[in-house]
Design a protein around this nucleic acid. Structure first.
Lengths: 164, 164
DNA sequence: GGTGATAGTGAAGTACCATCACGGTATGGA
DNA sequence: TCCATACCGTGATGGTACTTCACTATCACC
């Protein structure tokens, strides 16, 4: 009973939840293999179809990445014809990133597929279990969100106190 | 009713599941901020504590990445003192990647934390919902695994038929 | 003892992300 | 009106995570 590395821990719910996300991301990546779309670039398009034309700064804030990174992502998307940079009507510093019609079409299709997949997955849960399942997932998500939030707040406080 | 980009789609279960995974990964990243550990390198350690000393090739197979990539990850882990490369007893081409004692300790601690978190999350699900919740997560994971598997098999078949 | 697979790595390239420095623009006073 | 300051985007630079291709060293087998 020293190393017991062969003693595989049982598969926990957390493992299952992580596996689900992993499978989904793998599927998404496979879907766009061969195109110039990548997960990060798709995230940009996904945001744009939800919020409409946006400045790069706003995009960076919502996606929680650096503005510099957005520049690169938009560069790639623009080169492939998914988005256009248009001048901002009343701020000459900013640009408005807008989906091209074909990209908008693609993203709407993706939204439909996403909703369909979600329904299909819910469909495999036994009807009697469905409500409890939804409540459970919601409760876990809420709790985790809470945990991460306080952890980040704690770290931010520690940083403010100790550093600089 | 043309673009309705402001028309936010409702949050689906799939969204929730993805959010859970995202939160978890964010928490993990935050935990190792400041150290030389990163998600990919942690994955290597996680595998090693589960399976014991391993060749890089076996590691690459299990993690589903290229052997070349494993070289780089092990380089970094070795430089930071998490693993050692030891000669394989009966194959002079191969090396055995082994956890250093302190890294083994760290990973066992991580296993405990992981199990604890999993329990804590299950704990926030109402007791009456728990069984249905577990069945639901299992069913969804199984179905998704199935979907991804057949999708990949289909693509592999198409590639074999059309290409080269 | 040669031949073909196998283990690991160098070289080169892509994607994603960060920070820092800088130029252009907006904005709110003095 | 003019200036300080804050803000938008991007060039430069660098790190991590991944890939494929070419190459060496070794193994395994006949």
């Amino acid at each position: 009973m020293k190393y017991h590395h062969g003693m595989d821990a049982p598969v926990t719910i957390l493992d299952r939840l992580l596996e689900i996300s992993d499978l989904f991301q793998r599927d998404l990546a496979r879907e766009f293999a061969g195109t110039s779309l990548t997960p990060a670039r798709t995230r940009v398009l996904w945001d744009l179809v939800h919020t409409g034309p946006s400045t790069q700064h706003a995009l960076a804030t919502r996606l929680e990445v650096s503005p510099r990174n957005v520049t690169g992502l938009v560069d790639a998307l623009e080169a492939s014809g998914y988005v256009r940079r248009e001048p901002h009507p009343d701020d000459r510093r900013a640009v408005l990133v807008t989906l091209t019609p074909s990209a908008a079409e693609l993203m709407h299709e993706m939204q439909r597929d996403h909703a369909e997949l979600s329904d299909a997955l819910l469909g495999v849960v036994a009807p009697a279990d469905r409500d409890a399942f939804l409540r459970g997932v919601g409760a876990v998500a809420d709790r985790l969100r809470d945990l991460v939030e306080t952890a980040e707040a704690g770290r931010a406080a520690a940083r403010a106190g100790v550093e600089r």
